[in-house]
C-alpha cells in the first residue's frame, strides 16, 4: 500500500490521522453543511442575517413542509422521476443489446460503430442542441416528458454501450463456445448466458445513468418550458428566482434536489464506484 499504512499499534498516530481527515472533510463539505443548516432556520432568523452561525431554532418539519406546500417542488420532483426511471430502463435494455453484439459478433464496421458510440458520448451537448430541439418541436414532443426521455436514453446509450461492450468482452470465452456447441440461438445465448452474468454491470449502469439524468440541467431548459414537465434541476433554478429572500426555503429545496442521487450513491456505493472507474479505467 502507498502511502505506507499507519501501524495498528500506533494508536495515537491513528487518532491524530482520523482527526486530521475529519477536519479536512469538514472544510471540504462546509458549503454544503451550511446550506443544510440554513434549511433549518426560521424565516425571522434569515431576515436577521444569521446565515452561517448555528441555527437558533430548528424548523426541519416547518421548512420542508412549506417548500412542498408553497412551491411547485413536489411537481418537479415527480417530473424528474417520470423522466429518469424510464430513461434508465431504456438505457439498460439498449446497451445490453448493443454491447452484446459489439463484443461477441464480428462484422465489418464493428470497430467504427463502437468508436461512434464512444466518441458521440463525449460530444458537447451544444453541438446537437439545435437539431434535437427542432426534431422534438417537429414531431410534437417539445415540452413533454417524451422529449427528455428519448434524448437521455439516446445519449446515455453511448456511455452505456462502451461499458457493456467491455464488460461482456471480459466474460470467459468458453461460455459462448459452449452455447454455440449446443446450438443456442443468439437470443438464447443473450438471455441464458449473458444476462445472468452482467447483473453487477446492470446495477452499476443503473445508478450511474440515474445520477446523470437526474442531474441534467441543460436539456431540461432546452426541451421543456412548463412547470408540468420541468424536472427538479430547472425547477430549483426557478424557485431561486421566485423566492429570493426566503433562503431557508430555497436551501431546503436545494437539499431535497440533492437527496435522491446522494441516497442512491450511499445505497449502491460499491456499484457506483466500480462503474465509474471501470467505465473510465478499463475504457
Amino acid at each position: 500500500m502507498y502511502p505506507r499504512p499507519i501501524p495498528e499499534t500506533n494508536r495515537s498516530a491513528r487518532a491524530a490521522y482520523v482527526t486530521l481527515v475529519t477536519a479536512v472533510l469538514v472544510l471540504w463539505l462546509l458549503p454544503l453543511v451550511t446550506v443544510m443548516l440554513t434549511s433549518l432556520r426560521s424565516f425571522e432568523e434569515v431576515m436577521a442575517g444569521n446565515y452561517w452561525g448555528w441555527p437558533k431554532s430548528f424548523n426541519l418539519v416547518e421548512n420542508y413542509t412549506a417548500v412542498f406546500k408553497q412551491t411547485a417542488l413536489a411537481r418537479y420532483f415527480a417530473n424528474s422521476l417520470i423522466i429518469t426511471l424510464p430513461s434508465v430502463l431504456g438505457v439498460l435494455i439498449l446497451s445490453t443489446l448493443t454491447g452484446y453484439v459489439l463484443s461477441r459478433h464480428r462484422f465489418p464496421g464493428n470497430r467504427l460503430v463502437f468508436a461512434l458510440f464512444v466518441g458521440g458520448n463525449f460530444l458537447p451537448a451544444q453541438i446537437m442542441m439545435i437539431p434535437v430541439r427542432d426534431l422534438m418541436v417537429g414531431i410534437g414532443l417539445y415540452d413533454t416528458f417524451f422529449a427528455l426521455i428519448i434524448f437521455h436514453t439516446a445519449f446515455q446509450t453511448g456511455f452505456a454501450t462502451l461499458f457493456m461492450r467491455n464488460f461482456i468482452a471480459a466474460l470467459p470465452d468458453e461460455l459462448f463456445q459452449a452455447a454455440r456447441a449446443e446450438g443456442a440461438s443468439p437470443w438464447q445465448t443473450l438471455w441464458h448466458v449473458v444476462v445472468p452474468l452482467i447483473r453487477p454491470a446492470l446495477a452499476a449502469l443503473a445508478i450511474l445513468t440515474f445520477t446523470f439524468v437526474w442531474n441534467d440541467y441543460f436539456w431540461a431548459i432546452v426541451l421543456t418550458q412548463s412547470d408540468a414537465v420541468k424536472p427538479v434541476t430547472a425547477g430549483l433554478n426557478n424557485l431561486r428566482g421566485e423566492w429570493v429572500s426566503a433562503w431557508n426555503l430555497v436551501a431546503a429545496a436545494t437539499i431535497m434536489v440533492a437527496i435522491p442521487p446522494v441516497a442512491m450513491f450511499f445505497l449502491m456505493q460499491r456499484h457506483f464506484i466500480a462503474g465509474l472507474t471501470m467505465g473510465a479505467v478499463k475504457g
Binding site: S95, F117, F155
Partner: peptide, 14 residues
C-alpha cells in the same frame, strides 16, 4: 439487437 440502440444514437446524437 443492435438496430434500436444504433438507430436512436445515430439519429439523435450523431
Amino acid at each position: 439487437f443492435i438496430l434500436p440502440g444504433a438507430l436512436l444514437f445515430g439519429i439523435v446524437i450523431i
